[in-house]
Design a protein around this nucleic acid. Structure first.
Lengths: 258, 258
DNA sequence: GCAATAGTGTCTTTTAGACAATATAAG
DNA sequence: CTTATATTGTCTAAAAGACACTATTGC
């Protein structure tokens, strides 16, 4: 096999290679802004950041120390960026077993003062209870949730302001164009709870008007009524519960929604 | 500024770093399978591949020599993967000035026998005339277009079979969920020409039925009639021309298409 | 009974689907 | 006048939008 010859003569040093390969993770959750009896929730979309320690694990001054940043770190040679993202998230924040998705690569020359460092950005969408055990570890001195409306006012490390802007745009779109809103809700939910989730990203009248939305939820092909099951957690009048069903959503712009 | 101290003590050799950072490009085009007078076109979606040379530019045996592959190559330290993709495409195939988009990262350990090599995958959607001057150069001994139905039967280099599978899935979705079909069409086109493009990725009756589609095209918010302009290139009866207009398409699954 | 949320009734307007019928022009 | 595409007519059914009205329950 001629690949063997090629490999013998291949000089791995021939090309200048990157100085680092990293992963960053934008974890989003939704908190109920206030929790009152018999009230539909008002929700607030949050992103989880860490505060970078002043010194690294070996006691030396840390890069971008004291700034807020996405959790993340260097990829090991025996793992993919995706696996690294899961590991770093666990190591820095204690958060594990959540569903991540890759959404971008950040490799502009000069983005990191330490050299030619390439970062893979991931996002996750989780209910708050999945990250309630978060805790700063490793490189992180604090872990905190920030409203997406305010997060960009912080002093952010590296080019994380840009990554966060992009992540917010991605999840706004995902919330409306896919059924991921499911991830922010209990298995069985009322129309007003789904509405509250969607209202964190749009003020469109088709969603904000109660009567319209209460009707629409019944005709959505990917949501079904939980027959005969009601709750009083959002109002005094018992409210119908719904659940997502697992079907692929046809989102063609040339088709009718069915 | 404490970053300076951190930088002084930062050891770029501390982490094992990747052995290479590359870009690959999947260029798609649509060819009219047959071109007859007064007939609507029948179209075929194609992807452009290169055949890897037996020897590299310095005369040494090439990796994966003789196999078909996506154009692409190593990223230089002073460019992003995106810029590298444009350069490699130009160098290997002579194709320049086309719109690329990033769609994935391939970094599974072991994917490239030469070492830890990370690749960024890009796709492009272009009318055939934009790549009609393609010509093999550099590492490539041939450039050819393959139907997406047959391309996976070829002997493909590295993990390009997987990248190509992913790219095909991405453009199928893009064609239906965004207005990129535009890129395969002249500025002014008939309903049957748009229909032919969409039929390369779906056989759904809402698109294949002439009367239904001819009506639907008039109500699509992102397409307008070119007033009073007709052509006879697809039929003896003069046919209305349409054009895409540049508006963002609301593709929310909770909204009505308007 | 009041207040607050959930949900229905009903009317009007649009849209979709089906399929038959008509329009146009080359040859 | 035949043929192949393009396009409209027409009917039916379903969906959407608007807004008033009803339902339920804690207090």
């Amino acid at each position: 096999m001629s690949n063997e010859q090629a490999l013998q003569q291949y000089d791995v040093k021939k090309y200048r290679t990157p100085d680092g390969y990293t992963s960053d993770i934008a974890v989003f959750t939704i908190l109920s802004a206030k929790e009152e009896a018999f009230k539909p929730p008002v929700m607030d979309l949050k992103i989880m950041l860490i505060k970078r320690s002043m010194v690294d694990s070996e006691g030396r001054p840390n890069m971008e120390a004291g700034k807020w940043a996405l959790p993340g770190g260097f990829v090991n040679p025996d793992e993919s960026a995706f696996q690294s993202a899961q590991r770093e998230l666990r190591e820095e924040t204690g958060v594990d077993h959540i569903h991540l998705e890759h959404f971008g690569v950040y490799d502009a020359p000069g983005r990191d003062p330490r050299g030619w460092i390439i970062s893979n950005a991931h996002y996750a969408i989780v209910p708050e209870h999945q990250i309630s055990n978060r805790e700063a570890n490793d490189d992180a001195s604090e872990v905190e949730l920030f409203s997406i409306g305010h997060v960009l006012d912080l002093e952010l490390a590296f080019d994380h302001a840009q990554i966060i802007r992009d992540a917010i745009a991605v999840i706004r779109q995902k919330l409306l164009e896919s059924a991921v809103a499911k991830e922010f809700l209990p298995d069985e939910f009322t129309y007003s709870e789904l509405q509250a989730v969607l209202m964190t990203v749009t003020r469109d009248s088709a969603i904000t008007l109660d009567a319209a939305f209460a009707r629409k939820i019944k005709s959505l092909p990917f949501i079904e009524e939980v027959e005969g099951k009601k709750t009083t957690r959002t109002s005094k009048k018992p409210t119908q519960l719904y659940r997502f069903i697992d079907i692929e959503v046809n989102n063609s712009i040339y088709h009718t929604k069915k």
